[in-house]
């Protein structure tokens, strides 16, 4: 299914922002619905077929998080929270209440577009298509690793990985949630003891992140645990 003509609901109490986003995403070929508070958003959703929601948190009448909970009662379309609240706790709260992604204001327009694309692709091509999971496939969000084909796809799009990058990604995805130190990654991948080679691992990690993350400084999949190591988000 093509992401073109997909319908996106933009919810924000700031009309200018809603219009700006509408323009931005409109240029990408999406159909845009606008709502200015949570209640309107829910109404919109009932009346129209919507494929993705961009929702602000702080809004009159019904705030974004409450609206999202209501929506999630029946609907599993991707929801991206767009908030000025940039604290980790806010992000965790948003994600745990059913958001698929969290973008902080002021957003980078390019990043916003990329994330919308990514979420839509995943929803339409993977989530909705419901492609079956084989034993030899690892999937985290839109990131999928096919062990047989030795290929990695992001939101359905194949990504070109070097063999080392592939091995590191495979290791981290197989043990998603577990933190690996650079040393351990090195010895597992190169099968020899590391000696001041942490930088090597870090360079690889950076390259992987550049390939799979929309915004490498706010990674979605491959996270740095500062002072300890790296891990793949579950």
């Amino acid at each position: 299914m093509n992401t073109e003509n997909s319908a996106i609901l933009v919810v924000d109490d700031d009309h200018d922002i809603v219009n700006a986003i509408a323009k931005l995403l409109g240029k990408e070929g999406y159909r845009i619905y606008k709502a200015y508070n949570g209640l309107e958003a829910i109404d919109m959703l009932v009346q129209n077929e919507i494929h993705l929601i961009l929702i602000d948190v702080m809004m009159p009448k019904l705030d974004g998080l409450s609206a999202m909970m209501k929506i999630r009662e029946k609907n599993n379309i991707p929801i991206i929270v767009l908030s000025a609240k940039s604290e980790d706790s806010d992000k965790i709260l948003g994600l745990s209440m059913g958001a698929d992604d969290y973008i902080t204001k002021p957003y980078n327009p390019m990043e916003l577009v990329a994330r919308v694309n990514s979420n839509l692709r995943r929803y339409l091509s993977l989530g909705a298509a419901g492609s079956t999971m084989s034993d030899n496939k690892l999937r985290i969000g839109g990131l999928e690793l096919d062990k047989d084909a030795k290929q990695i796809t992001l939101d359905g799009e194949p990504v070109k990985f070097t063999p080392t990058e592939y091995k590191i990604t495979e290791l981290l995805m197989e043990n998603a949630g577990r933190t690996f130190s650079a040393e351990e990654i090195y010895s597992r991948i190169w099968n020899e003891d590391s000696f001041s080679v942490e930088n090597t691992v870090m360079v690889h990690i950076r390259h992987i992140r550049e390939k799979i993350e929309i915004n490498p400084s706010e990674p979605r999949y491959l996270k740095v645990v500062w002072g300890i190591g790296y891990k793949m988000e579950k």
Partner: peptide, 14 residues
């Protein structure tokens, strides 16, 4: 501060 800034950035981009 962030809300107007968001608009500014968005429209500059547009």
């Amino acid at each position: 501060l962030k809300t107007p800034l968001t608009s500014i950035i968005s429209y500059i981009n547009l």
